[in-house]
Design a protein around this nucleic acid. Structure first.
Length: 204
DNA sequence: AGCACGATGCTCT
DNA sequence: GAGCATCGTGCTT
């Protein structure tokens, strides 16, 4: 089993963390020690209350409090009336920043993840290809908000994966920031692993 | 392959 | 009461 990413990995500039999370493995430990996991292939950086695309822009609230907490914890929020999304908190405690995990390539427990997603055609083809999809596939919700991903007994954590060369990474504007003013709306804070490089990762 | 739309309820004004 | 870091379906190119 690969070594886990430590607190010091997350206590760094958010863009570096987002970039380096590509190729890492997100692991959900279920009852009975069963592992669900996937390689991270897409992530976005949300950096401080100056970032008008970031939930921290309007200050600290009950919903976004985890972003101000220690690095290496989860920030899980509810949106669009039905979806949960997973972030990993970054930088020093007191500075609100996080990386949204947007897509995984299934590695372990794919059948379980597909079942969790329900019987939809799209879900069967790509059960973890979206922030709300992967949260549902891994069974993540409000209970995981504030979860310490670096604790030895963590049920959700990250493992070191493949080193990804810059030539396998693309960047672009973050998704869904429709009413966010420039320049925040268009900043290159979205990181993706190229499809050819995804195909080289070990499958399920 | 791409766009439009509705679902659905929490969060903050 | 408005807006939302989304998703699946159904319809158009």
């Amino acid at each position: 089993m690969a070594p886990r990413l430590s607190r010091s990995f997350f206590k760094r500039p958010t863009l570096a963390v987002a970039r380096e999370l590509l190729g890492a493995r997100l692991v959900r430990l279920e009852a009975g020690g069963r592992r669900l996991s996937g390689w991270i292939v897409e992530a976005e950086a949300y950096v401080g209350s100056e970032d008008l695309g970031c939930h921290a822009r309007a200050g600290r609230t009950a919903r976004n409090a985890s972003m101000w907490g220690p690095p290496g914890h989860a920030y899980v929020y509810f949106t669009y009336g039905m979806h949960w999304c997973l972030n990993v908190v970054t930088e020093a405690e007191g500075f609100p920043a996080a990386v949204l995990i947007r897509a995984l390539l299934p590695a372990e427990g794919q059948a379980t993840m597909v079942r969790r997603r329900g019987g939809t055609r799209a879900g069967r083809r790509d059960p973890t290809g979206g922030p709300a999809k992967l949260a549902q596939a891994l069974g993540l919700d409000r209970r995981f908000d504030g979860h310490d991903l670096c604790a030895p007994q963590a049920r959700l954590f990250l493992e070191r994966g493949r080193r990804i060369p810059d030539s396998d990474v693309t960047t672009g504007p973050r998704v869904g920031l429709n009413n966010v003013p420039e320049p925040w709306r268009s900043l290159a804070r979205r990181f993706l692993l190229r499809p050819e490089a995804q195909a080289r990762l070990p499958g399920p």
